[in-house]
Each structure stands twice: as structure tokens, then as C-alpha cells.
Write a protein that binds this DNA or RNA. Structure first.
Length: 245
DNA sequence: CGCCAGGGCCTCA
DNA sequence: TGAGGCCATGGC
């Protein structure tokens, strides 16, 4: 079932090419991109600063629209702050001003400082070779990094097959009827990881496609009329029925 | 205007 | 361990 839904997403939305990276590898904003051309085309991050940017973005996007996050990242980027040494030196209050647009800027500035401090003791180069579970545990020990942020970092920064569960995932799949709305994070994660081949590329694309679907179709007020999963979805069937009555 | 966005921490039972 | 309050900007 999970693979089948992935296929439907992929066939209709095309490859997403996550994680979105500032200024690089944009395929342009063309809404009319050919379906087979990824929306972004970022493979595994090439440099340590790319990894760092993903780690920062994962914190900045917590409960926040990505558009607001992009502004914050651009702001950091043009001030050469996507850099470990610079982030070590900058005071938390000053950092907060650069990321204001991402919201919760005081909390996030603190989280980023915690993360940077962690990287001082644990160089990115050393983290790459760690096992998924070990790396996940130590990421979760950083204050400001919870399960979703940790899994995003594992998957998109370090290419570890850790499925990312977010609000969209819960909303979409509970509406379909194959998970329960108040299942725990780990329950949902396990359901996906059990139902899919453990494959980094698959996990990366799947989460990105879920976000795409959740933003545009399975919204708080969903547009079931145009939803490609309407026939698979308990919520959509009921919704469409009561509407035409 | 009010609602919502790719959560996580702290507190209090 | 789980529910509720809190953090905050910007787009629509």
C-alpha cells in the first residue's frame, strides 16, 4: 500500500530532488516543468557546508512555511554565516536577528547554537561513518532537535534510510485510513519503514512528495475533487459523497 | 482579519 | 507518557 501510493505520487508529481538548497540547483520556478525533470536536482550534499545548510534548514523549518525559511537561509548565506566557525563566534542574539523571518527565532537561534556546539565535538566527517541508530540517538540529545528534525538530518544530510514523519504525513495517511490520527511519531515511522524497501532515494522522494501533496491538495481544507488518491481515501470518499448530495 | 505553516520543549498531572 | 501552553514571522 505504501509503495503503491508512492507510485501514484511520483507518477503525477514527478521527482522532487530534495533537499532544497539555497541558490543552487534550482530548476527554476517554471510551473510548466516537464514531469520527468526534478523540481530541484540536489543529490547527496557535496560539501560540508551543504550538509551544514541542511542541518540548519531542518531546524529552521520546524512548524514553519519553507518560504520563510528560505529567506532566513538566504540571509545567512549572503552574510557568509553558513559556516561552522562563524556560527561558533556569533552571539545567539545576533544570530536570532538573521533568522527572524523563520519565526520562533529566539528558540531556533538557541537550537542552532546547541547544534554547532555539538559539531565542535563531533566533526561532520566523523558523523558520516556512524550507524543510523547511533547517529539518531546523539542527534536527539541536542536540545532543539526532535524526531522529525533528526530524521530529516539523517536522511537528507547523511543519506541514512530513516523515514521522516511530519504533520503532512499524519494528516494524509490518517485521512486515507491506514494510520490513526493520534498514532505516535515512532508508530507512523515504523509503519512506513516496514511497508517499504529500505532505500535512501525512495525515502527522500517519498517525504518530499508527501510535502508536495500536503501543501497543495491534502490541505487543512483539502481539495478532494482534484486528489489523485480520492479512490484510495476514506476521507475523500465521504467528503465527495456528502458534497454531491 | 484569522488561519496556517515540512516541531519541540517544558510543565504538570 | 500525554495533553496543553508557549514560541513568532509572513502569506493568503
Amino acid at each position: 500500500m505504501y509503495q503503491k501510493i508512492f507510485n501514484k505520487f511520483y507518477d503525477s508529481y514527478g521527482p522532487q530532488g530534495w533537499w532544497p538548497i539555497s541558490g543552487k540547483n534550482r530548476t527554476g520556478k517554471a510551473e510548466d516543468r516537464p514531469l520527468h525533470v526534478p523540481k530541484h536536482h540536489n543529490g547527496p550534499p557535496k560539501t560540508e557546508n551543504d550538509i551544514l545548510e541542511i542541518m540548519l534548514g531542518a531546524i529552521l523549518t520546524q512548524n514553519t512555511n519553507w518560504k520563510n525559511v528560505e529567506k532566513a537561509i538566504e540571509n545567512l548565506s549572503k552574510n557568509n554565516l553558513i559556516n561552522q566557525e562563524k556560527l561558533q563566534q556569533i552571539p545567539q542574539n545576533a544570530l536570532a536577528e538573521f533568522i527572524r523571518s523563520a519565526g520562533y527565532y529566539n528558540q531556533k537561534a538557541k537550537s542552532i547554537k546547541n547544534q554547532i556546539h555539538f559539531l565542535e565535538d563531533n566533526p561532520i566527517e566523523d558523523l558520516k561513518s556512524k550507524k543510523l541508530e547511533d547517529l539518531r540517538k546523539i542527534l536527539l540529545d541536542i536540545k532543539g532537535i526532535g524526531p522529525e528534525t533528526a530524521d530529516s538530518i539523517l536522511l537528507y544530510a547523511f543519506q541514512k534510510p530513516s523515514f521522516v514523519v511530519d504533520a503532512y504525513t499524519k494528516r494524509i495517511f490518517s485521512r486515507i485510513g491506514i494510520i490513526i490520527a493520534d498514532d505516535s511519531y515512532d508508530q507512523v515511522k515504523q509503519a512506513f519503514e516496514t511497508g517499504l524497501k529500505q532505500d535512501v532515494t525512495l525515502f527522500k522522494e517519498y517525504h518530499a512528495l508527501i510535502v508536495e501533496h500536503g501543501k497543495n491538495v491534502c490541505k487543512t481544507h483539502p481539495t478532494c475533487e482534484t486528489c489523485i488518491l480520492a479512490h484510495d481515501c476514506a476521507f475523500a470518499r465521504k467528503h465527495l459523497n456528502t458534497k454531491t448530495k
